[in-house]
Design a binder for these strands. Structure first.
Lengths: 348, 348
DNA sequence: TTGAAAGCGCTAACAA
DNA sequence: TTGTTAGCGCTTTCAA
């Protein structure tokens, strides 16, 4: 038995379809007794209004698109939970789009979302030249960036001060006496990785150190790649005494690589990350990292999106909100090894 | 500038709306030249068909609902990725519903999904008496259970042999010489927790041991609760020598508690989990656990759902597929301490 | 091969 | 307070 429609409800209740519409939308000007009668029929027949038909005539939907690059990266679930939770509270349903770290999927997903006539889109993992923002602009659908953003585009964005955070993290390591600090990059095309690298570079330079290319590795924000990168770093003639990973996931990979190489952390090698994902606080990991207030940022980004959708705000130039990350010192970082002059840092 | 509609395309191309419809749906019986002309106009005007209007007339949508209880639990993202990925490949968009471990939200979400007229729903975290299955049945919307299921209801389900897995895990610990094995339950209303507990009990009994109530604790599938539970267990006059947690997340909490209590793992205490989430393989954790092939199970569950949706199958009695979990022995489990006769197991 | 017309389920003017 | 009517954007007969 398929679903009922409002015409059937109207017939059963002996009223017009318009009155049924007024009742289900809590509109005024319905006699109390009529309302009760209609509600009774709705309940008895198990009627559920059709949101698609409603959207067609009201020209508004209660769907929002959420695009993430890698739901399996423990960084994203908190963000997703936050967005989806607030969306539901606000009457919106979330269409999840997981691009599996493939920027070319952005276009495909955005096309999907436009077909669905979503009210707005939240990008957590935007990359340049995807064409996705242009598609949405042409369709007149508002969107907001969170986490990553695009430089030079006036899109409302909620960000962490990645450069400042990385600067401070690097400074923290320098103050511990480390002079050979490696950096493992995230995905090349992302502002998060670029800005963190910039902070790392600036901090080194400001403190009188040179950026050594051998200490720059690529990790693509994934654990396995960071494992490989760390293995390479540890085999250098003069290995680093500290490794700064552009996110926590990669730091986990780095810790594994150090473990397998017999390098003690933090005695021989300091490893630090960025994000402070929930697992980083496990006693057995206890990763030093920069905490991003992702839940808060995600909520704020959705708030802005809802303001845009519901006409409470217009996208203005430079609507960018920046949150400061916080240094969380745990047990994977420590003073540079005293014998830190050459191969001495390696215990194997 | 809002989006175009097919009428505008028709006008610009000098054809009827019906022809535009034929073109965008790749229907036959359109002259090649006409097709090209229409496609050109579509491209120029940036036309994107409206899925909602289409659904209204075809009476089918390409939306599926995915209900998870706790996206932040690292167990779920893999499942979500798998479902969402296959859904997109099959032309469906996924509406994500995260109940935040609150079964009463099931009803609210299902109502949402019915309003959206989703083509089908995948439950990963069903609990009894939510009313959600009944809602969907009345609406004539097919659904499938994966991970958790409901006994006595003939709903297609894709499951792990939780009881068998827990039985084998308990046996493994018994064979290591443990006689005081504690069990930390998951959420009470879930078949996963109940079945794992049943396997634990059966295994103890089959090997001539009694189930001691003091060794049964509640952990609700979350790390923090398992931390507390473990702390209590370790303070018992005769503490357990092994703790079997109903999922990996809780095992992480147990490891933290042991750490804080100065109890060595696995020398003084073995800790094992269930799931084999990606982080369990970290060297610093190295958790012994039962692996569930979640990605595979999720894909299979969605396949079944799509078969149901697209009429390739009917929900038959007992459409239940069971996968065997696999014991992964790592470093959190070891022989029972030889001094395992009283307080000796505690090092602090 | 193409077009005209009807209608999916709903809301919103307007009229009563 | 309630009903009538038109129409949102699309597909689908049926006829040409």
């Amino acid at each position: 038995m398929p679903l009922r429609n409002s015409k059937e409800i109207a017939a059963h209740a002996g009223v017009s379809q318009a009155t049924v519409s007024r009742v289900i939308n809590n509109k005024p000007n319905v006699r109390e007794e009529t309302r009760r009668r209609v509600l009774k029929v709705i309940d008895e027949l198990g009627y559920v209004p059709n949101a698609e038909a409603r959207s067609l005539v009201t020209r508004r939907t209660n769907k929002i698109g959420l695009i993430v690059s890698d739901i399996v990266n423990p960084f994203y679930p908190e963000l997703v939970e936050s967005v989806e939770g607030l969306a539901r509270e606000s009457g919106y349903v979330t269409l999840l789009c997981n691009t599996q770290r493939d920027p070319s999927k952005d276009r495909i997903y955005v096309r999907f979302l436009i077909e669905q006539r979503v009210a707005g889109v939240l990008f957590t993992s935007i990359t340049p030249r995807s064409g996705a923002p242009e598609q949405l602009m042409q369709a007149g659908i508002p969107f907001v960036f969170v986490n990553r953003y695009l430089k030079g585009l006036n899109v409302p964005s909620v960000l962490t001060d990645n450069e400042g955070g990385a600067y401070r993290m690097t400074q923290y390591l320098l103050e511990l006496g480390h002079s050979r600090i490696a950096f493992i990059r995230g995905l090349p095309n992302t502002t998060t990785s670029q800005d963190r690298e910039a902070g790392y570079r600036q901090s080194l330079m400001d403190h009188g150190f040179k950026v050594e290319n051998v200490y720059l590795e690529r990790g693509d924000y994934i654990r396995e790649a960071a494992y490989e990168a760390t293995s390479r770093l540890l085999q250098l003639p003069v290995p680093p005494t500290a490794i700064f990973c552009a996110n926590d996931c990669m730091a986990f990979g780095a810790l594994d690589a150090a473990w397998d190489a017999g390098v003690r952390v933090p005695e021989d090698l300091s490893v630090v990350g960025f994000d402070n994902i929930p697992l980083s606080s496990l006693r057995a990991i206890s990763l030093t990292t920069m905490e991003q207030p992702m839940a808060k940022m995600a909520r704020r980004a959705l708030e802005i999106l809802l303001d845009l959708i519901e006409g409470r705000a217009l996208p203005q130039d430079g609507m960018i909100e920046v949150y400061e990350p916080e240094l969380i010192v745990r047990r994977t970082s420590g003073p540079a090894p005293s014998s830190a002059s050459g191969k001495g840092v390696r215990s194997q």
